[in-house]
Computed example of a mutant assay.
Amino acid sequence: MNLIFLLMAFCVGMAMSIQAAVNTQLASSIGANSVVAAFVSFACGTIVLGGVALSRGGLGPTFAALAGQPVWKFAGGFLGAAFVFGTVFLAPRIGLLSLIVLVIAGQLLTSMAIDHFGLINMAVRKVSNVRVAGACIVALGVAVTIFGDRIVATLTR
């Protein structure tokens, strides 16, 4: 794998945490309205992506091709909205660290299934035992991150 792509993926993960924190602050400053904060986040993103798309040759042919797409291919937007709303809603309630480690655990398990079985028309990339072991280590890290203080407190009584 290209090191640049790996670094880009790491930066995307950093951006997710920062986005959740920024959107949470926006929500709290507008009356704890998580839905409006998620909407504003998507609106800002739409403006930026629209500008980039226009600079890369326009939207006309792409919009024309949209009409022939099956409805399920539009689920990404709904899932993205659910993600942004979920982070804005949950971050102040469970904390950013708990939110992000659980998001990572959910992404990890879902991604393994999609890769292994080629779900959603993705290429099949069989998950090896080594990768399953890595996922188990990450899952253990999630458990320690969320329940570690309680476990330590229980063991030291």
Rank of each mutant, 00 (worst) to 15 (best):
M1G: 13
L3D: 03
I4H: 07
I4Y: 05
F5D: 11
F5H: 12
L7S: 04
F10V: 13
C11L: 15
V12M: 11
V12I: 15
M14A: 10
M14K: 00
A15S: 11
A15E: 10
S17Y: 12
I18S: 04
A20E: 00
A20D: 00
A21F: 05
N23P: 00
T24N: 08
Q25H: 12
L26R: 05
L26C: 02
L26Y: 01
A27W: 02
S28W: 09
S29P: 01
G31M: 05
G31P: 02
G31H: 04
A32Y: 12
N33H: 13
N33R: 05
S34Y: 04
S34E: 10
V35F: 05
F39V: 11
F42Q: 13
F42G: 10
F42Y: 09
T46A: 14
I47V: 15
L49N: 04
G51Y: 04
S55Y: 06
R56A: 09
G58Y: 04
P61L: 08
T62Q: 14
A65W: 06
A67S: 15
Q69V: 04
V71I: 14
F74M: 09
A75G: 02
G76L: 04
L79T: 07
A82G: 08
A82S: 12
V84T: 13
F85C: 03
G86L: 07
A91Q: 13
P92N: 10
L97D: 07
S98Y: 13
S98A: 15
L99K: 01
L99A: 02
L99E: 00
V101N: 01
V101T: 07
V103I: 15
A105H: 04
Q107W: 12
L108W: 06
A113I: 15
A113C: 07
I114Y: 01
I114K: 01
I114C: 03
G118L: 03
G118M: 03
L119G: 08
I120S: 10
I120R: 01
V124Q: 05
R125T: 13
K126S: 15
K126W: 13
K126H: 12
S128L: 10
S128P: 00
V130E: 15
V130L: 13
R131Y: 11
G134N: 09
A135K: 01
I137K: 01
L140W: 14
G141V: 07
G141F: 13
V142Y: 06
A143V: 14
A143W: 14
V144N: 01
T145N: 02
I146Y: 06
I151S: 03
V152G: 03
A153W: 01
